[in-house]
Design a protein around this nucleic acid. Structure first.
Lengths: 222, 222, 222, 222
DNA sequence: AATGAATGAGGTTTCATTCAT
DNA sequence: GATGAATGAAACCTCATTCAT
């Protein structure tokens, strides 16, 4: 049985800005629920996570989940939207140099799941089985890969630049796959590998996949 | 809601070696259950799959799952073992030329989940939440990546060849990640991409990751 | 699903004497709650009505229901008492000529539930499941039929006049039954029948049941 | 709180043909559930009845309600259909003399709810709040009153005979209203009145409402 | 006086599993 | 060996009510 104790969540709570729920603050309660839910959903998966787990982790009554998010699915959606929003705000990615972008992606990969990373990529690994929530998940992934692709010359409505988007999605797939092997599957030795060991091969892949294609695209335009 | 009808599975069943269950053949019943279960678990995930779904797909009474496999988790384990066994039998991989190996891996990626491929990689994406089953899953993934790595010069107890295994696992991660984006998440355009579009970038990655390293490794030893 | 929106109630509220709640007037709050509750209980039934529905309709915070009426049951009781009181005040029924009394009863039947009729007979159709409230309901019905019967010669403690009360109760039963078929069950064509179509047969029944019996009663006295 | 004990149901169970559930007979289980449900729904109303009440009364596990009837609403529908079916089988009503028909209706009124009467009129008093179930309820009531009306000269598509149907529905309303006053409201003295006391006034009403109208209707045509 | 946050009990439903045939 | 009936443990959700401001 999966038995992620509430204790395992505490470090993150402590690291965050609001260590103690004030007791009668709706906003704080909502945030606490989303934070706990993201962690649970990312760690255990949607189906395996119970609303009681989440409520307990957040230190609030179960009924508040329905009060604030209508349903478990609604909470899942909120978690997704949360990731999506943070992603949207991360605008500087565009202007960052390629190497920095790669380095950042690699850091995300290595950091999950202990750091409460903005994108919480793990969450994107999980299918909810709920149509609505999964649609949001898909949109989030598409959105993110499009931004990644735009950085290297992808143009939305230009069919000739389609391969660039494909490569960005392959890069994303690599990132998610590694996170999965490291966290959910705990496959060794990759699960225990540190940044030092992973940086070189990942840099290699990402620079292959995520390299400037601009000139070529200009030429093949229709 | 995920709603893979029993009907959609039948073609594959028919294509298999045992089209009709004889009715009083324990072995056949077991096989039918495992086949149906692998498909369901891979497609819908462990939690979302009900034993009734599996039994219906297999054309068998639900109670037989407990009779033959003790529990749902037991059946999941059996599915994993099954994959593991088939993998073990696939020995000739070693002698295959690199390009053929890559091509085969790519075909697996593109074919999932419609082809009843031996490894059923999708299954490896799914966590059951059951400790035992997940341990088998981890072992299977480790075993498979070790074989992949051995092909390109990895030696089990030689710490200096460790980076090779890591690269093989990254390759595996890429494969699993792409399968996930294509099947579970249905992210476009990668979900609809055909072999033609995927072959080139994947060949590139795999040849980077899965290239003979023997000489070089010896040199870079620390 | 029954979905009487708050909006649909507003017109009646406006037609009433207190269109706007002053905000800090305990009496007005109580009245607003009772009015909203009577409508809801009568329309949707006790169980199907939520205290939130009522509070929303009344434009009042939910917690005030418990503050002023202790509980949902208490509010239901208050609604019943309210009907009962209005009924008590309706004294002139006694002196009205028989035909006028019948006509008034018929008008009640046809008018429900749109007119905010004083007795709100629909309310009497509904059982709350609460012992106390249902006792009040029974008393109200008994009281009302006694007054009806007294009009046609029934004497409280005279056992020989008992059949008169029975007839009055049968008349009441007819009235309630028709209201039910028209409102709750929506049985056609009676649900759409207008005053013109209902007047004649009802006049006939009521004059049969509610006719002066005084002489006969006098004779059979013991 | 409503607290109709299981004991109050036993007499009827004993009076019925199947006093003891055999334990592994699906048909018997279904019947036991419908019987218990009809009694509960009729007595306490749809909302106030819990599936656990019903299962306990029927002496079976709660989950079987969902197994056999999909949902609480499905069970309610089955109860309605049951009543409806029995009603359909009651064909001889047509040829019965008027007095016998009236007498039978009166017996139903007096008998409810202790006799497991075929129509279980009480059930028809109760709204479920479920759209589907309430539609069936309406249809049943319309069907029954049409049969009653057909007996006294109503012709389906003849608009001139419409008043006859209206009268039949008024008769039905009277019957249902009395049953309500006697059972759900327990209004005295009608609740304790016996057949002897009720027969005469009811005969009077029903013969007024349910009398052959064929010739007259032809004349009063508009 | 009034509000909105919070709570706990209880309702329906699903599902893996066991039992009896 | 196989079946279908039956079971009990949760799971999600609703709702009347109480608490703190």
């Amino acid at each position: 049985m999966i038995e992620t104790t509430a204790a395992s969540v505490d470090p993150a709570l402590g690291a965050d800005s609001e260590p103690i729920r004030s007791g009668r603050d709706a906003g704080a309660t909502r945030r606490a629920l989303v934070r706990a839910a993201r962690r649970r959903f990312a760690t255990d998966g949607y189906r395996a996570t119970t609303v009681r787990d989440i409520a307990t982790d957040a230190g609030v009554n179960v009924a508040l989940i329905n009060r604030y998010f209508t349903s478990k699915e609604g909470l899942f959606e909120a978690c997704m939207k949360h990731s999506s929003d943070e992603l949207g705000g991360q605008a500087p990615l565009r202007s960052a140099s390629r190497d920095v972008a790669h380095e950042r992606l690699i850091a995300h990969i290595v950091g999950a799941p202990n750091e409460d990373d903005p994108l919480q990529m793990l969450l994107l690994l999980r299918s909810s089985g709920d149509e609505n929530a999964d649609r949001i998940r898909r949109k989030t992934l598409e959105h993110y890969t499009q931004r990644l692709a735009a950085n290297i010359g992808w143009v939305a409505d230009d069919p000739t630049s389609a391969p660039i988007l494909l490569k960005a999605q392959i890069a994303m797939a690599t990132a998610l796959g590694i996170i999965m092997l490291r966290t959910s599957a705990a496959v060794e030795p990759i699960a225990s590998a540190g940044l030092d060991e992973l940086r070189e091969p990942l840099q290699h892949i990402f620079s292959t996949l995520l390299t400037e294609h601009e000139q070529q695209q200009q030429q093949h335009e229709n």
